[in-house]
Design a binder for these strands. Structure first.
Length: 589
RNA sequence: GCCAACGUAGCUCAAUGGAAGAGCAAUCCCUUCGUAAGGGAAAGGUUGUGGGUUCAAGUCCCGCCGUUGGCUCCA
C-alpha cells in the first residue's frame, strides 16, 4: 500500500493558503486583509476583508467559481511553500510593512503567550503567519476540492470586531470521496427534521404566530405526548413528585432569583399591568425558567432532613428571547418545554443523587435509541459563589459518577456557571451538529437567595444543596433530533399512526372498520383509509407517511377472518389471524 | 443582533423589464381495483410587506417582516 505523504489536514490547510493566494490574484488592485485560514472537519476556510480605498467589497457566491479557477491555476503552476523562521519582533515589522492589521492582532496575542519566534509560509505573492506544516509545492494539492459558501464571521469570534467574509471549501484526497461527501450531504438533508416535519405533518412554525414558536400538528402532538407520558412515568417511578406551575410570575420573583439581572437579555420584556389598570402596580414576567416556582413550592412547608432528597418535576414550558439569527427549526426556539426537575439534598447525598440522575438520563437516551453522544463536565469558573470546599466535593461527585459508569467525557475547566458545576450531554443531529440535551447542574446560589433550609437531627437550620436537571433538555429540541435520528421512521411505540387499515373495495369497509375497532380496543393507534383511491395509491401514501404496518383487507380476508400484513419498507408479509397479530404487535408496543 | 442569499397557488418549483405557469395536494365526476401514483373537469394569485425608478416591475433600488447558511449565544 502506498503511504500517504501528507495528512489530509495538511493538504486542507495548504488549500486554504492556495485559496488566499487565489483571492489576492482575483482581487488584484484591492487591499486584501487576511484573517485566519485553518482546515475544518471536511475542508478548509479563510476569512478575508477586501477594501477598495476603505470601501468594503463583499465576496459573493457568484465569485466562487472565479476563485476556484485561480486556485486550479496555482496548483498547476507548481509554486513552492517556503518556510522562514523569524523573531516575533521581525514578524511585527513585516506585517506592518505589508499592512495586515489582523495578522498584527494575532501577533499581539502570541506576544501575550510569551512566544518569541514565529514561522512564515510564502506561496507565490502570499505570505502568511503560520505554524504549518504544509505540502512542499502547490502541485501536490489535489483538485478534488470545491468552494461551497461565503458567510460573515467576526474576527476572532468577537462581536465587537469587524465581520470578515469567510469562504468555505470542501476538500478530499480524491474526486470520488468529494462526490461521496456531497451525496451524504444530500441524504442528510432528506433527514432534516424541518423537511420531515412538513412531510409527515408533525409541526409547523408559522410566520403569523411568531418565529421560534412551535405549532404541533395532530400527528406531532401525539408523538410529543407519547414521549411526555413515558418520561413522566419514569420520573414518578424514580422518586420524583409532580408539580405544576404558571407561565407568568410577578417580576419581583425574578428579582429575588437574580434572573432579572444576569438573565435579562434572554427574557421577554415584562408585562406592565398598569397599562390596563392604574391600580395594578406590579409587573409580570413570562417565565424563562421553572426553578423559582419549584423553590416557592419547597417553601410551602417546613422540611426536615427526613424529607431529603426531595425531587420536584414538571414539564415546564418556558420562553426565552433568543436572537433571531440563532433560531433553527425545533432545535433552537423561543418557547420550549423542559422536562425539568429540581432536587434538594444534603451534602452527603449529593453523589448518590448525581449518580441516580445520570443513570436515569442515560437509560432514557438508550430507550429512545441514542448511543452516540458527547459528555462534558464543566468546573469552577474564576468568578463563583459558595465555598471552594463544597465546589471541590461537588465536582468530585460529578467525576466519580462518570467514572463509575465508565463514561469518557470532555473536561471544560472553568466552564461551569458561577453558581455550580455541571454535566452536559450533547447528541448529534443529521448534519453532525451537536445539541445539548441532558444537563445536570449543581446550584449553591438559589437556596441562599431564597433562604431555603431544612431542619437537621438537632433541629438546626441547614441549607440544602440544589440540583437542576433536565434529561431530554427541551422536548422540542429532543423531538427534532429524534425525528432526524430515525429519519421519520419511528419505532412502533413512537409512531403517531401505528397501523393503517386499507379495505380493497368499498364493500370491505365494514370489515375494515371492525378490524380497526379491535385494534383500538387493544390500545393501538389505528387509522382507516377508505378514500376512493386505488389500493396502490393508498399504499404509496401510507409508505410515504412512514406508517409501520398496513393491514389490507379484501374478500379473501373477510371470508377467512384474517388480515394481510404489510410492513414499512419490507412489503407484503402474508395473511395473519388478527388475535395472533395483536400478540405479536404487543411485544413491539 | 451581525454578514450573505432567498421569499411566486396549501406543498415543490417555472417565468430576458413586455399577457403570472406546471406538477402534487384539495374539490367534483367517472373508474371497484390484491401490495408505491387509474382517467377527466373545474378551481386555486394584490408574486411576503410598504415605498421608489420606469410607458411598463415577480424581475431594478430602499425600508420592514420572515426563511436559510454562518458568526455570536444556548435547553
Amino acid at each position: 500500500m502506498k503511504t500517504q505523504k501528507y495528512s489530509l489536514e495538511t493538504i486542507r490547510h495548504s488549500l486554504a493558503h492556495i485559496m488566499a493566494l487565489a483571492v489576492l490574484r482575483v482581487y488584484d488592485g484591492y487591499q486584501v486583509n487576511f484573517g485566519i485560514g485553518p482546515q475544518t472537519e471536511n475542508g478548509f476556510f479563510y476569512d478575508f476583508e477586501i477594501l477598495d480605498k476603505n470601501k468594503r467589497i463583499r465576496i459573493n457566491a457568484e465569485d466562487l467559481p472565479k476563485i476556484e479557477e485561480a486556485m486550479k491555476k496555482i496548483i498547476q503552476e507548481g509554486l513552492p511553500f517556503k518556510k522562514t523562521k523569524i523573531s516575533l519582533k521581525e514578524a511585527k515589522k513585516f506585517f506592518q510593512k505589508i499592512n495586515q492589521p489582523y495578522k498584527l492582532e494575532i501577533l499581539k496575542s502570541l506576544e501575550k503567550e510569551k512566544i518569541k519566534e514565529v514561522s512564515l509560509y510564502q506561496t507565490g505573492e502570499f505570505v502568511d503567519l503560520c505554524r504549518g506544516p504544509h505540502i512542499k509545492n502547490t502541485k501536490e494539492a489535489p483538485l478534488s476540492f470545491k468552494l461551497v459558501k461565503v458567510s460573515g464571521a467576526y474576527f476572532q469570534g468577537k462581536e465587537t470586531n469587524p465581520m470578515l467574509d469567510r469562504v468555505e471549501g470542501l476538500a478530499f484526497l480524491t474526486e470520488k470521496e468529494l462526490e461521496q461527501y456531497l451525496y451524504q450531504l444530500a441524504e442528510a438533508e432528506k433527514r432534516d427534521h424541518r423537511v420531515l416535519g412538513a412531510q409527515l405533518k408533525l409541526f409547523e412554525i408559522s410566520e403569523e404566530v411568531g418565529t421560534g414558536l412551535v405549532l404541533w400538528l395532530p400527528k406531532g402532538a401525539i408523538l410529543k405526548r407519547i414521549v411526555e407520558n413515558y418520561i413522566l412515568d419514569e420520573y414518578l417511578k424514580n422518586g420524583y413528585q409532580l408539580v405544576s406551575t404558571p407561565h407568568l410570575a410577578r417580576f419581583h420573583l425574578w428579582e429575588t432569583s437574580g434572573h432579572s439581572n444576569f438573565y435579562r437579555e434572554s427574557m421577554f420584556p415584562p408585562v406592565h399591568l398598569k397599562e390596563i389598570d392604574p391600580e395594578e402596580t406590579d409587573d409580570y414576567q413570562v417565565k424563562p425558567m421553572n426553578c423559582p416556582f419549584h423553590i416557592i413550592i419547597y417553601k410551602n412547608q417546613l422540611h426536615s432532613y427526613r424529607d431529603l432528597p426531595l425531587r420536584y418535576t414538571e414539564l415546564g414550558t418556558v420562553y426565552r428571547y433568543e436572537r433571531s439569527g440563532t433560531l433553527h427549526g425545533l432545535t433552537r426556539v423561543r418557547g420550549f418545554t423542559q422536562d425539568d426537575a429540581h432536587i434538594w439534598c444534603r451534602e452527603n447525598q449529593l453523589e448518590e443523587e448525581i449518580k441516580g440522575t445520570l443513570n436515569l438520563g442515560l437509560k432514557l437516551l438508550k430507550e429512545f435509541g441514542f448511543n452516540d453522544y458527547e459528555i462534558y463536565l464543566s468546573t469552577r469558573p474564576e468568578k463563583f459563589i459558595g465555598e471552594k470546599k463544597i465546589w471541590d466535593k461537588a465536582i468530585k461527585a460529578l467525576k466519580d459518577s462518570l467514572k463509575e459508569k465508565k463514561l469518557s467525557y470532555h473536561l471544560d475547566e472553568g466552564g461551569g456557571a458561577f453558581y455550580g458545576p455541571k454535566i452536559d450531554i450533547k447528541i448529534k443531529d443529521s448534519l453532525n451538529r451537536f445539541w445539548q440535551c441532558t444537563t445536570i447542574q449543581v446550584d449553591f446560589n438559589l437556596p441562599q437567595k431564597f433562604e431555603m433550609f431544612y431542619l437537621d437531627e438537632k433541629g438546626q437550620k441547614q441549607r440544602p444543596i440544589m440540583i437542576h436537571r433536565a434529561l431530554l433538555g427541551s422536548l422540542e429540541r429532543f423531538l427534532g433530533i429524534l425525528i432526524e435520528h430515525y429519519g421519520g421512521e419511528f419505532p412502533f411505540w413512537l409512531s403517531p399512526i401505528q397501523i393503517e387499515v386499507l379495505p380493497i373495495l368499498e364493500k370491505n369497509i365494514q370489515y375494515a372498520q371492525k378490524i380497526k375497532e379491535i385494534l383500538e380496543n387493544n390500545n393501538f393507534r389505528v387509522e382507516l383509509n377508505d378514500q376512493k383511491e386505488t389500493l396502490s395509491k393508498r399504499i404509496r401514501e401510507a409508505e410515504l407517511q412512514k406508517v409501520p404496518y398496513l393491514l389490507i383487507v379484501g374478500d379473501k380476508e373477510e371470508k377467512t377472518k384474517t388480515v394481510a400484513l404489510r410492513k414499512r419498507k419490507k412489503g407484503d408479509l402474508g395473511t395473519f389471524n388478527i388475535e395472533e397479530l395483536i400478540d405479536q404487535l404487543k411485544k413491539e408496543q
